[in-house]
């Protein structure tokens, strides 16, 4: 069979693609030894939909949020002075920024409410837009409702930041480590180029512990629990009090409730 140059190059090209694509497609080797050997911690807290109630009446005394500081220290959240590069999981906002719809210009909301700090964090929405848009499932929702970040998988496209209606997400514009004054050796840091946010302390819940902020708040203003369980403390609180939720009209069904 006579093969001309053109033909030869074609065959060679196809062969190269075939030879390289084969191994590339065989993505991950099966790890047989570890199949079926993983367990949940029996101490893990069990809930169908985790939620948080913030009693904002108790927040007035705190100029600085102790709970937020504890969270940031525990999770190795860097303190970056430039507000453009800031990373925040939980922080205080004024009423007009936390609830811009309810505080339109000239609105009469009362001096006391205006002064009151509002602790805001990821709302762990029932219908999270961030999860919807993530192109790699790096942001996903657990069965118990927690909206989680898989830092190993995030490509840093920041689609989730555009999608989040609450400004809950931060991007690592640079290596965060130089801005962590005291590392918590029990928890990882993040690296430049990934997005991060509050995860309701999923790893503590899985070990039977409450979120750091809930434990740290000296006023017990933050209450955590299963909103699907009518006997939980959070359910009783929202039953008893009128609560606000941020941007409810967007249909995200946020799971942080504010007692006014």
């Amino acid at each position: 069979m006579a093969v001309d140059r053109r033909e030869f190059i074609k065959i060679a090209g196809v062969s190269v693609i075939g030879l390289t694509l084969g191994p590339a497609l065989k993505l991950e080797e099966k790890v047989e030894a570890s199949e079926g050997k993983v367990r949940r911690d029996p101490k893990a807290l069990k809930g169908k939909r985790w939620a948080m109630v913030v009693d904002t009446r108790k927040c007035e005394k705190c100029k600085k949020c102790v709970a937020a500081e504890a969270c940031h220290a525990y999770h190795n959240v860097p303190k970056i002075p430039d507000p453009k590069r800031e990373i925040k999981w939980i922080w205080q906002e004024s009423f007009e920024h936390a609830f811009p719809h309810l505080a339109a210009e000239g609105e009469h909301i009362g001096e006391e409410i205006k002064r009151r700090p509002f602790v805001i964090l990821c709302n762990h929405c029932k219908h999270p837009p961030c999860v919807r848009v993530c192109p790699t499932k790096a942001t996903f929702q657990r069965e118990d409702g927690i909206v989680m970040m898989d830092m190993h998988r995030c490509i840093g496209c920041r689609f989730c930041m555009a999608a989040c209606p609450y400004g809950s997400r931060s991007f690592n514009w640079m290596d965060p480590r130089p801005y962590i004054t005291k590392e918590n050796p029990e928890y990882p840091t993040r690296t430049k180029g990934v997005v991060e946010k509050c995860d309701f302390c999923a790893e503590r819940i899985d070990q039977g512990l409450l979120p750091v902020c809930v434990e740290a708040c000296p006023e017990k203003a933050l209450v955590f629990g299963d909103i699907n369980d009518p006997n939980s403390e959070v359910s009783k609180l929202v039953e008893k009090h009128f609560t606000l939720r941020r941007k409810l009209e967007l249909g995200t069904d946020p799971q942080v409730y504010y007692i006014i």
Binding site: S34, K37, V38, R40, A44, F140, M148, H152, Q207
Partner: peptide, 20 residues
């Protein structure tokens, strides 16, 4: 590979313990 699987099991599925 083991560590790779662990990180998925821990972060994505909430399994925290391993029977060695």
């Amino acid at each position: 590979q083991l560590l790779n699987k662990w990180r998925d099991d821990v972060v994505r599925k909430g399994y925290r313990l391993y029977v060695g």
